[in-house]
Amino acid sequence: MLVYLIRRILVMIPTLLLVSVICFAVIQLQPGSFADRYLEDPRFTAETVERLNAQLGLDKTPVEQYLIWLRGIVTRLDFGFSFFANRPVSGIIGERLVWTVVIAGITLGFAWLVAVPLGIFVALRKNGFTDAVASFVGYIGLAVPDFLVALLLIALVLAYGGTNVGGLFSAQYLGAPWSWGKFLDFLNHLWIPVLAIGTGGIAQIMRQMRANLLDVLGADYVRTAKAKGLHPRRVTYRHAVRTAINPLVSMAGLQLPELINGTIIASIVLNLPTIGPLLYTSLLNKDQYVAMTLLLFASLLLMVGNLLADLALAWVDPRIRYG
């Protein structure tokens, strides 16, 4: 097991290197430069462009820039600095990481808590009325992009005179110490992103759970268990559901990078202080080290998520062993 773990981690290194090279190349291929948006400012002369490029290391060749950046990461875990904010990238990402994890965690948790029981419920009533309704709603949930749900929810709140139309807090609670009032205000804002981002996930997980469970319910051992006179509820929940949930565990691993990439537009619409909008603006602004670090982070999350899922699978499913 330990050998397997070490081998998996070692494989990540060349993969990350390859990812970083590709990302860097793509960012370099983007037209324009970091200085472009300043050109019209009366203060911005050709001399300033030169100085700025020298300060930012942009006067070096792209290969040199990449190697310097890489050396910083390897030797002192320095992910470069943001051109825009003139601060280390790690600090800028760190400020937003907490809220990103909190929102993503709650959203994922919500989606799973709703979707898994719902999937079981409709699987046990296959082709019935509830199944049809849930499937219909599920398809809509899958088809409608999360940012559109977010916009609709905002319009709905506005129509009913609400003020919780974006962000996580009302202005008066921003930066204030935690209190009961602040917590309620937080909950009042939180349900919109949770619902908007979570709906797509619910439909997906529910469909998956339903299909898995139906597969398992048709399996030989379930029939055997039933034939042996076991209580149907016991057969379903003790044996069938436990097996059916396994593929979902690997799906969960794949959802980790979604924390950054999957919800960018919804996060912008909802004005969430998360990493998604940061990636978007850094790509637009050619703030290359912020964008690179975030893209690298997303691929790392994908790989770690996969690894965790595989390990979890081995843990829940006695048929899987790594050695």
Binding site: L158, G162, T163, N164, V165, G166, G167, I268, V269, L270
Partner: peptide, 10 residues
């Protein structure tokens, strides 16, 4: 997002 915040009175 700005329009929504303005219309909400924020």
């Amino acid at each position: 997002a700005q329009v929504a915040q303005f219309l909400a009175g924020n």
